[in-house]
Simulated assay, not measured.
Amino acid sequence: MAEVRGVVARAKGEPVEVTTIIVPDPGPGEAVVKVQACGVCHTDLHYREGGINDEFPFLLGHEAAGVVESVGEGVTGLEPGDFVVLNWRAVCGECRACKRGRPWYCFKTHNATQKMTLADGTPLSPALGIGAFAEKTLVHAGQCTKVDPSARAAAVGLLGCGVMAGIGAAINTGNVGRGDSVAVIGCGGVGSGAVAGARLAGAAKIIAVDMDPRKLEWARGFGATDAVNAREVDDVVTAIQDLTDGFGADVVIDAVGRPETWKQAFYARDLAGTVVLVGVPTPEMQLEMPLIDFFSRGGSLKSSWYGDCLPTRDFPLLVDLYQQGRLDLDAFVTEEIALDGVESAFHKMHTGDVLRSVVMF
């Protein structure tokens, strides 16, 4: 058992606080990881605002990299000293998706069985089953993916959520291919990841769409060939069509997750094109459209879960590409902050001043 500092959200909408948390020794199938870096993701803010569930108090943080400190009984392939990126979808290997050879859709993902607690014994709900705004965290061993230990923790830890979601939305879900045209609506961390993924896949034209000129400039840095400021055009759909010979893009990725942006994605794709929804809607959002348009346009309408990634396959590959200079993960790290800077980072996220603030330990 260890006493460490961690960032906790005690109640809906209240500022987070740094406090003492208790991390138990790992049980069967579990691991304790000494966290080196953890990105501040919008999902953490969703937890604080009660947008995920009401199981307060939450131990926030989930985009993390660190070193395994100890492992529990029955853990194989993972040892103390291993440098790992944490993931929130540890596949089970036994559900119907895994047995059909589609483990990236695993319907029975694992988290640690034991609970981390406050000093008074109050159980904590770790964000996405990780809880890495803490000096150490307890996870299921399957949530640890070994990667090149010489990689920069602040950069590769971002593969734990947003950047992987974006890259995977393009490569895994959207199946972007060489010579394709791609449009990405919303160019924050996830959208910029989608731009980077489309570039890795060999897309010939990558159109970034956002209302913030700073985000459009960031997207150009990740490989966007064109930028559309949604505030400055009469119609986003027409703007995308104008950049694709009037046809629309082969793949359009909605990294915002609102009915308005999804409709733009739907109508901005070419006939038989693909729409990928990777932005997360809220439960009350509704969509109403003519059913005939779904039939007459053909193609694929997909939702991307975590970029449909398989951590054991995708994390080491992307880290290798990063180490080779072919994927600029460093560019996602806007600032490095201390543990007590998380609340301030939430404010910067709201104002669009950062792609990612990263807590360093």
Rank of each mutant, 00 (worst) to 15 (best):
V7K: 14
Y306G: 10
E49W: 08
A127S: 15
A2M: 12
L86G: 05
F58A: 12
D120E: 13
E288I: 12
G50W: 05
V163E: 00
R10C: 00
V275G: 04
F107K: 02
D82K: 05
R214W: 04
F266C: 06
D82S: 09
L310T: 12
G193S: 07
G248F: 03
A165G: 07
P24T: 09
A255R: 09
V256K: 02
K348L: 10
R313A: 10
S150F: 03
C38G: 03
E284K: 04
P24L: 08
V176S: 06
G325P: 02
D210Q: 13
G142H: 09
S344V: 13
V35N: 12
V163N: 06
E30P: 02
S357W: 04
V16D: 11
T238V: 12
I337F: 08
K146E: 01
H140M: 08
V139D: 09
C98V: 00
G197S: 06
G197R: 08
H350D: 15
A196L: 10
G81N: 10
V358M: 11
A198V: 10
G66N: 14
K12A: 12
F222T: 01
V68S: 01
S344N: 12
K12Q: 14
E260K: 13
A230L: 10
I167A: 02
G325H: 12
I185S: 10
C309F: 03
L128I: 04
I22R: 13
P283K: 04
G66T: 08
A9P: 04
A201E: 11
V84K: 01
D245W: 10
V251N: 00
T312P: 00
E94C: 01
I52D: 04
V278D: 01
L118F: 01
V209H: 05
V278A: 07
V252N: 04
D120I: 00
P259M: 06
E135M: 14
P80M: 04
L86N: 09
T109Y: 07
I207W: 13
P26Y: 07
R313W: 10
H347T: 15
A203T: 15
T145E: 06
P281E: 11
E17Q: 14
L355K: 03
R313P: 03
R220F: 02
E30C: 06
P15F: 12
T334I: 03
E343S: 11
G27Y: 09
A31F: 08
Q264M: 13
R48V: 13
V85D: 07
I130T: 12
T312Q: 13
R297V: 08
L128P: 01
V68L: 02
S303C: 11
P15K: 07
G188K: 05
R89T: 15
K99H: 06
H350Y: 08
G160A: 06
A265V: 06
L301I: 05
P80H: 13
P15A: 14
E79C: 00
G50L: 12
A165N: 13
A338N: 14
L318Q: 05
D270S: 13
R297G: 00
T122G: 11
L128S: 06
V251I: 15
K348S: 02
R178K: 03
F332E: 04
V184D: 05
V354Q: 07
A249R: 02
A90E: 05
G298S: 07
L317T: 15
A64G: 10
V359M: 14
A31M: 11
W104S: 07
F133Y: 15
E336H: 04
W305A: 07
